[in-house]
Design a protein around this nucleic acid. Structure first.
Lengths: 248, 248
DNA sequence: CGCGATTTGTGCACGCCTTCACAAGCGCCT
DNA sequence: AGGCGCTTGTGAAGGCGTGCACAAATCGCG
């Protein structure tokens, strides 16, 4: 601290700088903090200690304090953090106050579910368009949105100024869809299709592969099975304590 | 190398030890390697170089070699890796040859899609049971499986020896469901509900939060927007090259 | 007004992971 | 048989992230 850090950066109209050098690991945890803070706010809490918020978010309290210190000094020593202030700050840093428009490509099994997922709207995202390559799906209404043909992607993306695209197509068509999204000006992609996408350097891609998650669990299952096979009896597990989350 | 490393560990009936000390980061990448290898095998490739496989999996070739070296010496210098052998080895290490039984709790929007997700069955997992607390959902048939009431979880889990459970319920019921899974003997949980689960130390939990992924993308979108606002004109992006995946 | 209790913010050390660079090994060609 | 090119496997260095432990700061109370 000793630095105020509250002023705005030149070129940034609103009061919060963009934090270009925030550690990636911290960024990945901010949404979790935000969720925990919202939950605390609903219970009427005015302030939280780092210990309390850390427990609610499932992390170490030292890590939480270090993460928040990167955003500036928003706590009061001896008291804790102001819940409402922190909610506003983190939301602003994540750019959630922009109410970002998102489009979804591929309304198959998974895409259908994503189109109706309530968790998106409740956290600052608006799904504004659905696309599919299958003519039989075009025209279908899902959650109040009409499925459009993928050929209309470019036009709609520009009209609605969509910057984030979600790919929920079969693996084979993921790459051409990504190319189309990039051509339409999308600069962030969330990909649910297995496989590696090739995109320009200025486009960010995050991948979610449901089968990979299960395979990682399977490995640990395999490991646990071979451990309990030999050593000095460990049938009854330790008492219920805190969470053990594997991997990242 | 210089060590053979191919023999089995005492207590491990089959030929592949459980690799208790495999780095977590390596484990998380093995499924991606496996997918790339399957793809290569379909195209008829007999062997792959680390460079080629790394490209197909979207990672650095040095990282790939170090990862594979942890599994033993399965490559031939001057030639590359035997695709079929590597597929078998990684599959075995991940425990995918066990054809693991998985149960899914919560057949709402997302759970419905997961129940029909083809990617599970094609990669060594069998969804053998669906549960829900809503009496109106019980009895419904999804993808050939009948939705059962959550109260039957314990009985069914034991009958089918289910070790992996997937939670796709609303946030509020995730913790009781996790408790029920643990009580039924499940030792690995894949959680799609936002929030922190508390489980015994011997149970592994992996979390997938779709909204968090979008929020991370939103941050980078925010950052990019404030960067292009000021500096020496960067409107046209760099040429299409390799992927830039943000975060982990 | 001063003091003690409490909690933040951070310097520091440790460990994990990544990346480079190269020696060791293998196959092929002559 | 020998040499040459190619590729693996790995030692070492650097960077990042985590967690401890403590100084600095704030509040409340006597």
């Amino acid at each position: 601290m000793s630095q105020q850090r509250h002023g705005s950066t030149p070129g940034e109209p609103d009061g919060v700088p963009a934090f270009p050098d925030l550690p990636e690991a911290t960024i990945a945890r901010l949404p979790e903090y935000l969720r925990a803070l919202h939950h605390l706010a609903e219970t009427g809490a005015e302030t939280v200690s780092s210990e309390g918020l850390a427990a609610a978010a499932g992390v170490n309290s030292a890590k939480l304090r270090k993460d928040l210190s990167h955003l500036g000094s928003y706590g009061t020593r001896g008291v804790g953090y102001d819940v409402a202030l922190l909610v506003a700050q983190i939301g602003s840093i994540l750019g959630l106050d922009k109410n970002r428009a998102v489009c979804l490509v591929g309304v198959g099994n998974l895409g259908h579910a994503l189109a109706g997922y309530a968790g998106f709207a409740s956290r600052g995202f608006r799904v504004v368009a659905l696309f599919d390559a299958d003519a039989k799906k075009v025209g279908e209404v899902i959650n109040g949105l009409v499925v459009q043909h993928i050929d209309d992607l470019q036009r709609v993306a520009v009209e609605e100024s969509i910057a984030i695209g979600v790919i929920a197509t079969p693996p084979g068509t993921a790459q051409p869809v990504a190319d189309a999204l990039v051509a339409a000006g999308v600069t962030s992609i969330l990909n649910f299709a297995p496989g590696v996408l090739s995109v320009p350097a200025n486009v960010d891609v995050r991948k979610v592969d449901l089968a990979i998650e299960l395979q990682i669990l399977s490995f640990h299952e395999h490991r646990k099975a071979s451990l309990t096979a030999l050593p000095g009896g460990r049938s009854a597990p330790a008492e219920n304590s805190d969470q053990e989350v594997v991997g990242s």
